[in-house]
Design a protein around this nucleic acid. Structure first.
Lengths: 341, 341
DNA sequence: CAATGGCTTGCATACGTATTCACGCTGGCG
DNA sequence: CGCCAGCGTGAATACGTATGCAAGCCATTG
């Protein structure tokens, strides 16, 4: 069957009506006689007719498609994708399906001038930007995007652009919950892994929450126990190693991400240190691996399903009504084994 | 800037040439004078002009877009996506980017009549089908797709359709490698978890490889040690529980997927049984969590990166030259801790 | 009986691009 | 000096759909 695809004209001919009527009938327009509509729709089914979305988009000006732009630190094909973003991708895809929208997915080299490609090229009605803060929000082209009147949402901390909206977790609250829980367990020397990240400004908020919880407990955070880490296992291992090497006393770790936590946990276990017996650990994100490792990782869950739905819903409302506001989602502490409860 | 988007006519006016010339210049046609071309391109840049892909597609008949259809057992938004497919999604996305193609991602309810939506509706030039075998390959609409002359590739075991090509792992080889390795470690009572899966026919090939390795070692597979499981943690736990409850002797598990292996491993650990001391475990897939669990899981890696590239490359060649053949990819044994090496 | 209005339908056009066809101009050659 | 070749350009059109506008028909009403 290399035959030409059926068009609305073919249906029109077969139904003995005009192409306009076919178009209206297929879109359930009230203008067309119910009988005619039924006849046209029957013929359309019979011919396996599908509206040509390309032509339809050209005519109507909208694509019923959203574009997801993923910003990764290392966009080479070799590197694995951050598992948290991968889950977000899954939930966003499902949220789009639910609204009968299609989703274009694409990786972006942060250095590239990605600004124009999608909305400009009339490929999508709106954009979802996903990636660790600095790689996206500090990008000069984001300003251009904001100025362009395009429809977009971004995952991450709130930004001050006139157009475009932000959806993110309340990272400070998350850091606070993690730390308070450890304090309730009686831990007193709590270190924080993930300060001064260049990669992820959201870590700074988590760190702030950690400080708040200590302050509330009338404790002073020991500056030596607050160390740098990025969201990789290696980095978590290095961070905890530096603490051990310095001979510091600590009985718990609040980690700015699960990858850091898992790296740190494995390092401690390799050194024969019991987790959570000697050192309790709390992570952040609740990636899938958090539940699988031993001991299972207590962590601050960012509800990926709700996040994806929120991003998509807000973007669609923004497209339709043009008016929406940024949102902050509440994270949730998931207590497993690594915190010693 | 709510202004109208610039069109090729705007550029034409500004450059003092016709729209035809603009179109040719932007596509680097040799027909147009190099000077004119440079001038036109400069103006296009200046106006932030982007070719309207919708109109372009309508005219040329191709979209430079592929569609990825993901078939999941439980398409409700609540359920998490199988991590192996999620990684494939990532690698396919990257492979498309590398070819400057866009990727449409969409979940499919297996019961639905998904056949027509993409190529038919002129949304994509080709289709990639991804999901556990039966949900896709046994579907009646796949036959319609195969008959329709559409361009598509499917991940999984080879199928006999006239059109369309299959890319999959050599699952039998994988099962063989896993089992042979355990035999080399001196294990003799090796159970297999994942027989008779309704979900995943590829498990049957893995099981066959397991049998081949035993036969090669002149061992007879104990039928009691070959149990049913689907690719969920719970199912793995149940499977190994049934072995323990039956009081059977075994010193190793070959699992048809990593999720099964992780479920089984945790169950054994809960019962105070040492892995790999008393029981060695090998999984299949090499999902991210395999490296993170304790002990780290020895597993048969399906090279997700190469798989994604192969799917995309073959599909593109199929679209362009119309002639390609199915491929079988070699899996690789990744030795970690859970096998007791 | 004429006028009005509601209900259906068809005609014509626009969306923005890519490409076929035709044409004008320049220079070389007979 | 005239003709032809070839390069560069423009005019016109097609891709398939959605929709504003106009018109036809029938029934109702004054």
């Amino acid at each position: 069957m290399a035959e030409r695809k059926a068009t609305s004209f073919d249906i029109a001919a077969k139904a003995g009506v005009s192409q306009s009527t076919v178009s209206r009938a297929l879109r359930d327009s009230p203008l067309v006689n119910p009988e005619t509509r039924a006849r046209v729709q029957a013929i359309a089914r019979e011919l396996n007719y599908q509206v040509d979305r390309t032509a339809s988009s050209l005519r109507t000006g909208n694509t019923r498609t959203l574009a997801l732009l993923l910003f990764e630190d290392a966009p080479e094909a070799a590197s694995p994708i951050n598992p948290f973003f991968l889950s977000m991708l899954g939930s966003i895809t499902k949220a789009c399906s639910a609204h009968d929208y299609d989703l274009l997915v694409s990786f972006q080299h942060p250095e590239e001038d990605w600004y124009a490609r999608y909305e400009e090229a009339h490929r999508a009605d709106g954009l979802i930007l996903l990636g660790y803060g600095d790689y996206v929000s500090a990008h000069p082209t984001l300003q251009r995007l904001a100025d362009s009147g395009a429809h977009w949402v971004i995952w991450g901390p709130r930004l001050n652009f006139e157009h475009g909206i932000c959806v993110g977790s309340d990272n400070a609250l998350g850091g606070y919950l993690a730390t308070r829980h450890l304090l309730k367990q009686g831990r007193r020397n709590i270190a924080f892994l993930g300060c001064n990240s260049e990669q992820a400004p959201e870590f700074a908020d988590r760190y702030r929450g950690y400080g708040d919880a200590l302050k509330e407990a009338k404790l002073v955070a020991d500056p030596d126990l607050q160390v740098y880490a990025e969201s990789f296992e290696d980095s978590g291992a290095n961070a905890v190693a530096s603490l051990l090497d310095a001979g510091l006393e600590f009985d718990a770790l609040v980690c700015a991400s699960d990858l850091i936590a898992i790296g740190a946990m494995h390092y401690l276990q390799d050194k024969g240190i019991d987790v959570p017996g000697e050192i309790a650990i709390v992570g952040f994100d609740d990636i899938q691996a958090a539940a699988y490792c031993s001991p299972a990782l207590t962590t601050v869950r960012q509800d990926v399903k709700r996040a994806g739905e929120t991003l998509v819903n807000l973007l669609l409302e923004l497209i339709e009504s043009g008016d929406e506001t940024s949102r902050l989602l509440e994270p949730e502490l998931i207590v497993r084994e690594s915190c010693g409860s």
